[in-house]
Nucleic acid binder design. Structure first.
Length: 290
DNA sequence: ACCCAGGCGGGCG
DNA sequence: CGCCCGCATGGG
């Protein structure tokens, strides 16, 4: 078990706030830890006060594990600077007070894109169920021995595994009308579409490229850029964010999606993604506009 | 029963 | 362009 001191970090808020880890990781019962598959390794992270402990089952060197955990949970983000930039008003101030330590996680782009393609016109509980059934059905299995007992886990399914499944087969896991998008996304990602090149583009170009994919629109592209590529200026605008922004900043007046993008970009700039996650989680838990 | 969910593509004006 | 509609499925 390695340990690391952390400031301005809450693993609970981070893993509960409907990020990719919510969809494929398993939270500890007390909410202060999570286990997730990272390639062929299983990683466990838990938090006690201002330090985290973490370990990997499977072949992962200590230095690589440390880098993975640091990157995955956004522990390199300068939270005092970010808070200073997004604490623009009373609502944001309260959101930061209530959810301090919530970080933007950085996940595998393929995993992120798939999770958010599944998220469309769906709810968090069902998204998680569908993702976990896909992992159980199509993820490569690994057995690890820990203290005399054996543990089996499955890694996230590779695009190659999903690409060869029929739409009907994928629908058996409750994916509904998204099954055709899942299949096409998988085929593209193990075919001509280069997910690696997206990260090297600037935000606007990367978004245009992602939106070429069938089933990836404005919102899924922004989620993929934020949680998969760490592009913190992305401001995913779903029904919750739209309603919250209209309620908090426009006195309830309806705004278009592009109005909201423009507003967020002007107000929070390169940290709009962080503002979005605090708005989303605080507003959703307060049922703003509901 | 009815409504909605971290939207998207297609068709229309 | 902007607007409107249908869409699989299951929980509240």
């Amino acid at each position: 078990m390695q340990r690391m001191r952390v400031a301005d970090f809450s693993i609970r808020h981070t893993i509960e706030s409907a990020q990719p880890l919510t969809f494929f990781g398993d939270a500890k019962s007390d909410g202060n830890g999570v286990a997730y598959a990272c390639g062929s390794s299983m990683i466990e992270v838990e938090q006690k006060g201002d330090s985290i402990g973490f370990r990997a089952y499977g072949s992962m060197r200590a230095a690589r594990l440390r880098d993975e955990v640091r990157a995955r949970f956004g522990l390199g983000d300068d939270m005092p600077v970010i808070y200073n930039n997004i604490e623009t008003d009373a609502f944001m101030k309260k959101a930061i007070r209530n959810y301090r330590g919530l970080r933007i996680t950085r996940n595998d782009p393929w995993e992120t894109a798939l999770c958010f393609v599944i998220s469309q016109f769906n709810n968090v509980k069902r998204i998680r169920g569908i993702v976990k059934r896909l992992v159980a059905a199509y993820g490569d299995a690994h057995t690890i021995s820990a203290g005399g007992t054996q543990l089996v886990f499955r890694e996230f399914p590779k695009p190659e595994a999903l690409a060869e499944m029929s739409v009907e087969e994928l629908m058996r896991h409750g994916a509904g009308f998204r099954a055709k998008y899942i299949r096409k996304l998988a085929q593209e990602c193990c075919g001509s579409f280069d997910l690696g090149s997206i990260g090297r583009k600037r935000y606007a170009d990367a978004k245009d490229a992602l939106m070429q994919l069938d089933g990836v629109g404005d919102k899924v592209a922004d989620c993929t850029l934020l949680f998969g590529y760490g592009k913190l200026e992305a401001f995913p605008t779903d029904t919750w964010i739209k309603r919250i922004v209209e309620h908090v900043y426009f006195d309830g007046r309806k705004q278009s999606i592009s109005d909201i993008h423009e507003f967020a970009s002007e107000r929070w700039g390169k940290y709009a993604g962080y503002a979005q996650q605090y708005l989303f989680w605080a507003g959703r838990n307060m049922k703003v506009g509901r």
